[in-house]
Design a protein around this nucleic acid. Sequence first.
DNA 1: GAGTGGTCTAGACCACCAG
DNA 2: TGGTGGTCTAGACCACTCC
Lengths: 254, 254
Amino acid sequence: MSQGWSVKGDEEQQLLGERIAERLRGLIAQGVLLPGEKLPSEPELAARLGVSRPTLRSAVSELVADLVLERRRGVGTFVRQAAPLLQTGLERLVGTGDTIRQLGMKPGVADLSVEHRRPPEHVAARLGLTAATGAECVRIQRVRTADGRPVMSCDEWIPERVLPDPTHLDDLGEHESVYERLAEAGLAVRLASTSIVPCLPDTDLRRKLELPPQTPILVLRQLHFASNSADHPVLYSENSYNSERIELTAVRRG
Amino acid sequence: MSQGWSVKGDEEQQLLGERIAERLRGLIAQGVLLPGEKLPSEPELAARLGVSRPTLRSAVSELVADLVLERRRGVGTFVRQAAPLLQTGLERLVGTGDTIRQLGMKPGVADLSVEHRRPPEHVAARLGLTAATGAECVRIQRVRTADGRPVMSCDEWIPERVLPDPTHLDDLGEHESVYERLAEAGLAVRLASTSIVPCLPDTDLRRKLELPPQTPILVLRQLHFASNSADHPVLYSENSYNSERIELTAVRRG
DNA sequence: GAGTGGTCTAGACCACCAG
DNA sequence: TGGTGGTCTAGACCACTCC
């Protein structure tokens, strides 16, 4: 360990604690910090990195949650022996394209369609839409591929009333992220309430996902909320995963 | 809103922020704070509850994550219109009995069996067991019921070498929690790495869970780590859920 | 401009672990 | 006994929202 760890004053976009966490990840990846090695004490490390102890602790907590570091009370903080590879974590909300990229594959899209229509009742109910408030939605359907092979089928509904203008998504490109387009409209998605159900696909879906017969899949039903959208959800999606090609994982804490 | 909100000095077990969160939940449940109502500002609320602002913020953040409260920068913090009922959240690791109790049902157990044997290869691999280090495990199988009806089938493996003595779990009672027994042995489970896969049950499992034919289920494969067990997992479990009776949910953050 | 949540700091006190 | 992580406090400054 040497000097020059300071990280403040770089990009002012991210939270300071997250930038510190990235810096520590980098030190481990580069071999500056070796597996099993003990880190300096928290006050000392905070001073070296030029941040306060609470900020350093938030960074360390993130790495502990990701199984990269390990804390032992009264002893110290250590680099874990086998730092695990990150998987498709359910606890983090990321765009599908980024998810596929994280797995080291190249994302693509097939069968994109954008239309305007009223959603079926179970979708309208979740979105809180009634005929009085206007139930018209933008519906986006597409199949996502990884390295050219289909991995999931997406069915997304966005109420027109949350958009700055109803045509905001009509020109969505094949490689564009709905999340990014919503963010441009001031509707950055921050939270999704998700329910996970197993399902036997119908023949149409089986063809789209190239599934053999009698293969159950996972369906994620997600209700998305933006940071400034009060109680109104901005997006409902049903994503059907080919679970032979993408594994869903979660880290649970007690 | 009135005085008498102070909560400090009660049980010193939980984190202060969590006790504050519980108190706020209570105020909402009792109707002291109504849906849509604006809370006092953070500095004022912190003063009323007798805690610092960072502590109050940790409590509020927990309720925001649970969709109970909602923050609007520059405006205030509000009680959400439809405070959702809590479901089986994937992000939190809780014992099965507690999960069923949270859903308002009465937990029970059927077909309990405890045996000692070597695990199949895929289990041994996940637990990091080799013949050299000793692969012998305690295996616990049982069907969990809610209000008398089967909701999940559990298959749990604990390496004998992590237990204080190999017979530590042999007398597990029908209504006992494996987590609690491990905690008694100084192996409190803090973290589980989980993978979620859909599955078509075989006839035996279908009978146990009272499932109709052609009904896919969810299987959670979980590798559990204790707080002080360094890199060694202490428990591997495969839980098969009757997803018509228990819904798996998760809150994802961006 | 007044009030709000968002962030970060500095420092205190404690419980735990090792020598 | 000394060093470590675990927790909580007090207060600062900022960006945002609304009047």
